[in-house]
Amino acid sequence: SRANAASAPEGTDPRAKWVPQDNDVQSCDYWRHCSIDGNICDCSGGSLTNCPPGTKLATASWVASCYNPTDGQSYLIAYRDCCGANVSGRCPCLNTEGELPVYRPEFANDIIWCFGAEDDAMTYHCTISPIVGKAS
C-alpha cells in the first residue's frame, strides 16, 4: 500500500505539515520531493535529475510547485519516472504538496508517468525531481 511506500521516519508525525530541507537529496523531506510518489532515483544508481543506467527516462510527467527553503523561492518540479526495470525499493517516499485527484492529471502522482519512455517501457523503477522553471 501507499502507506508502506512512505512510512514516516520513526518518531515523526506523518500527518504533520511537510517541512522541506535543502541538504539531503536522499531524504523524503528534501524540498524538491514535495510531491514525489515512489522511490528516489539517487538511491539506485541515478541522481536527483538522471535515471539509473539501464532504465528509460519518461518524457511526460506530473508537476508540483515546491518551496526551496534556501532561497525562499518556489520552483516547478517535473517528476519524471525512470522506467523499464522493477521498482528499486530504495528510498521510498510519498509526498502530496498540492497534489490533486486523477481527473486533474497534471498534478496527480498516482499515475505511472512512464509515457514517452524509450521502448514503450511502462514499468516503474524510480522518480527524478528536475526543476523545469520558476513557479509564481
Partner: peptide, 19 residues
C-alpha cells in the same frame, strides 16, 4: 520497509492511449 508503490495501473492505462 516494503519496496511498494501503488500508483494506479488503471490510471496509467487510462492515459496509455495517449502515449
Amino acid at each position: 520497509n516494503f519496496p511498494t508503490k501503488s500508483r494506479s495501473v488503471l490510471a496509467a492505462l487510462m492515459l496509455a492511449a495517449f502515449s
